[in-house]
Design a protein around this nucleic acid. Sequence first.
DNA 1: GTGTTTATTGAGACGAAGTATCAGTTAGTT
DNA 2: AACTAACTGATACTTCGTCTCAATAAACAC
Lengths: 144, 144
Amino acid sequence: MPKLEEIVQQLEETGYRNTASRREVIAAVLSQRGHFAIDDICQQVRWAGRATVFRTMKLLQDTSVVCRVLLENGNLHYRLSSIGHHHHLVCVECGGVQDMEDCVVAEMLTRLANQTSYAIEGHWLEFYGRCGDCRVAKPELQAV
Amino acid sequence: MPKLEEIVQQLEETGYRNTASRREVIAAVLSQRGHFAIDDICQQVRWAGRATVFRTMKLLQDTSVVCRVLLENGNLHYRLSSIGHHHHLVCVECGGVQDMEDCVVAEMLTRLANQTSYAIEGHWLEFYGRCGDCRVAKPELQAV
DNA sequence: GTGTTTATTGAGACGAAGTATCAGTTAGTT
DNA sequence: AACTAACTGATACTTCGTCTCAATAAACAC
Ligand SMILES: [Mn+2]
Ligand SMILES: [Mn+2]
Ligand SMILES: [Zn+2]
Ligand SMILES: [Zn+2]
């Protein structure tokens, strides 16, 4: 979990400038718990403009500081990420997210490469369910 | 691949009314090739309003007449679907889509149920790559 | 420090996607 | 024919994200 200074420095080494707005957005992101929408950052930020929030979020995606979480309703959220490529287990009740560090489909990629003529370049995978706590709280609903 | 009359009849049996607008939207959907956006339907339709197109598309999703295709850029498209649960292999160059009838992660679900406290209720999985034809046309780009 | 260059900023316009409202219409039923 | 609940569509609205562009401020060289 990198700190503000580390992130800024890494950006500087890649040629990005160390600006006050950028720092404010990154600080707001680092203060988040769980997953959050871009709009959450926009509201938490004082002077940084909306466009800058979007621009900075894209930078943080590219540098793997945050990962994207596709909610079941289609909304796109973000989340601090200390690991590389991974997938999510999202609780549809409490919104809790669990990282799955082992990529389930990695082993599938070579199989796909053989069975089809496609060259696989990427994939999107999210799991939805109800976490243990929520199942205890409302046991009447059970997965099929 | 169900025909218009079959779809309408199935909807009627579920309590939905057989209306002219609904038929027009469904007919437009059935005329599509490959994947399409809702806006494509809105433009192809004469009298049916935009709200009705969205409403009817939701019906067609629920009855598995169409499936959703999440494009790499985040756009949501639709596609006629004759099969049940499946996933997609999307060519990022030509937009071609190939159905993957075997669900790769099905076997993973029981493993997840054991390893975590989550009750898995659903998942989203899409693959992106370049199809055989596009690879032949522009062989310089190769997947890693 | 001063000046130059170039990336960056933010206000605001814009567009796409989807939802909410609601008075008027229509399908199915009696 | 009358009734009623479902449906429609125009329109307003929200949310998400991009684009533009004049103004600003890093970084760097002197
Ligand atoms: Mn994550
Ligand atoms: Mn499909
Ligand atoms: Zn993966
Ligand atoms: Zn599946």
